[in-house]
Amino acid sequence: MEQLHSLTVVRHGLSTGNVTAQNAETGGAELIDIPERDADVPLAPTGREQAEAVGRHLAEHPPELAVVSPYLRTRQTAEIALAGSGVPVVVDERLRDRELGVLDLLTARGVQARFPDEARRRERLGKFYYRPPGGESWADVLLRLRALLREIREDHPGGRVVLFAHEATVLMVRYLAEGMSEADLMALARRTTIANCSISSWRGEDGRLERELFNSVAHLRRADAPPTRQEDVNAEPV
Rank of each mutant, 00 (worst) to 15 (best):
L176G: 08
A147S: 06
Q112Y: 07
R73F: 03
R153G: 08
R153Q: 15
L105E: 07
L125N: 00
P133H: 05
E123D: 12
T193V: 12
D140T: 08
P88W: 02
G84K: 03
R73C: 06
V91N: 01
D155K: 14
Y175A: 11
G179Y: 05
P88R: 03
A83K: 15
A108F: 01
E136A: 03
T192Y: 07
G134V: 02
R124H: 12
H156A: 12
R150P: 01
G126Q: 06
S137I: 04
T169Y: 08
L176C: 10
L105H: 13
A165P: 07
V89R: 08
A183F: 11
A189Y: 09
G134W: 05
L143K: 14
L142V: 14
I80M: 06
R96K: 11
R203T: 13
R120Q: 12
Q76A: 10
A168H: 14
L149Q: 06
L185F: 13
E93L: 02
Y130F: 14
R109V: 08
W138R: 10
R120E: 15
A187F: 01
A108D: 13
V102S: 06
G84D: 09
D104M: 07
R150W: 08
L82S: 10
T74V: 01
R150I: 09
L106W: 04
E123T: 11
R150D: 15
L185Y: 11
A165G: 15
R109D: 10
K127G: 15
I152N: 01
L188Q: 12
F115L: 01
Q76P: 03
